[in-house]
C-alpha cells in the first residue's frame, strides 16, 4: 500500500484548537495535527472522517481555507449523538481524523467564468473553501455570486464573513431566510426566489450547489431554465458513509459511490438518477 493511501486510510490524532458557536445548533471546529505529521492537503469540497473516541465516526466536509493546510476546519450541525459529541469537544481535546476523501468542486475548470454558489443551510460549509479559493485567486474568475438560504436569521452561518464577502469587488452575496422576524430586514423566501434578482451569463457560469436534495433539484431546474448546461452545474451529495473510501458500500447511489465518485458530481453525471425515488 502506498504511503499516501496509508495516511489517508489510517486514523490519526488531531487536537481541537478552537470551537466557535455559529448558531444555536452549529459549531465550527478547528483542529491541528497532534502527532507531528502534517495533514494531507485538501481540495474545496472534500471531506474527512472525524472520530470521537468511543462514540463514532462521521463524514464531515472541510469548511476551511484550502491554502491553510496546517489546520483543518469543520462546521458541524449537532443533530444526533455523534455530531453532538463532536461539537462538545473542548479546545485541547483529541479527535481522530482520516482523509481527505472524495472529489472536489472544479475550481480550476471554472477559471475565466462567473462562479455562482447556491447553498442551503449547512450546505454552505463545503462551499466556503470555494469562496476562500476564489477570493484568494480573484483574477482567475469574473464574478462571484453567492446565494445562501437558511431556515431563519438565527440559522445563518458565517454572518460576519457573508457581510465581508459582499463588500469584495465583483462579488454579490444574496442571503435569504425561509421565515424572518420583524428585526430581519434582509430577504425572505426560499433560495430559489433569489434568482429573479440575478443576471446570469449561462455560457460563462460555473454553478456549485449544496443543500438538501429537494432544494438542489429546484435550484437545478432554475439554472436549466436560465440556460446553464448540465456539465456546468455541480452539486454535492449526501449519503450514509462508514468508511469514506468505497469499501463499506453504504453510500451507493446508482452507479456511484458518493464517497469516492463524489461527493461533488456534475449534474450531467447525476441527471439520470437524481429523480429516481429511493435509489
Amino acid at each position: 500500500m502506498s504511503a499516501t493511501a496509508e495516511r489517508i486510510l489510517t486514523t490519526t490524532r488531531a487536537r481541537v484548537i478552537a470551537v466557535e458557536r455559529e448558531t444555536h445548533d452549529t459549531f465550527t471546529l478547528t483542529v491541528a495535527p497532534a502527532d507531528g505529521a502534517a495533514f494531507e492537503p485538501f481540495q474545496p469540497g472534500q471531506f474527512s472522517m472525524l472520530y470521537v473516541f468511543g462514540v463514532g465516526e462521521l463524514p464531515i466536509s472541510i469548511s476551511g481555507d484550502p491554502a491553510e493546510a496546517e489546520r483543518l476546519v469543520y462546521t458541524v450541525r449537532s443533530v444526533g449523538q455523534a455530531t453532538h459529541a463532536l461539537v462538545s469537544r473542548k479546545p485541547g481535546e483529541l479527535i481522530g481524523v482520516r482523509g481527505p476523501f472524495g472529489t472536489s468542486w472544479p475550481v480550476k475548470e471554472a477559471r475565466g467564468k462567473d462562479v455562482l454558489i447556491v447553498a442551503g443551510g449547512i450546505g454552505l460549509a463545503p462551499l466556503r473553501p470555494v469562496v476562500y479559493h476564489v477570493l484568494r485567486n480573484r483574477d482567475d474568475y469574473v464574478r462571484l455570486i453567492l446565494l445562501y438560504g437558511a431556515r431563519s436569521p438565527r440559522d445563518l452561518l458565517y454572518r460576519k464573513q457573508l457581510a465581508e464577502w459582499g463588500r469584495a469587488p465583483d462579488t454579490q452575496v444574496l442571503v435569504t431566510v425561509d421565515y424572518g422576524g420583524l428585526s430581519w430586514r434582509g430577504h425572505v423566501g426560499v433560495v430559489t426566489t433569489l434568482f429573479r434578482q440575478l443576471r446570469l451569463h449561462p455560457a460563462e457560469t460555473a454553478a456549485f450547489i449544496c443543500g438538501p436534495e429537494i432544494m438542489m433539484r429546484y435550484v437545478i431546474r432554475m439554472l436549466e431554465a436560465r440556460g446553464l448546461a448540465p456539465q456546468d452545474i455541480h452539486l454535492s451529495m449526501e449519503r450514509n458513509m462508514k468508511c469514506g473510501a468505497g469499501f463499506c458500500g453504504h453510500c451507493q447511489m446508482g452507479p456511484y459511490f458518493v464517497c469516492k465518485d463524489g461527493p461533488v458530481f456534475s449534474y450531467r453525471q447525476m441527471q439520470p438518477w437524481l429523480d429516481v425515488h429511493e435509489l
Binding site: 472520530y51 473516541f53 468511543g54 463514532g56 468508511c243 469499501f247 463499506c248 453504504h250
Partner: peptide, 26 residues
C-alpha cells in the same frame, strides 16, 4: 457482498475504546 458497518465499544469508565467492523446488509 462486501458491505460493512462499524460499531464502537468502550469500557466503563471510558479508558479503552475499540471500533469493530461488521458485515452489513443493504
Amino acid at each position: 457482498c462486501f458491505c460493512t458497518t462499524v460499531e464502537d465499544t468502550s469500557t466503563v469508565p471510558c479508558d479503552r475504546v475499540e471500533r469493530w467492523r461488521k458485515w452489513d446488509s443493504c
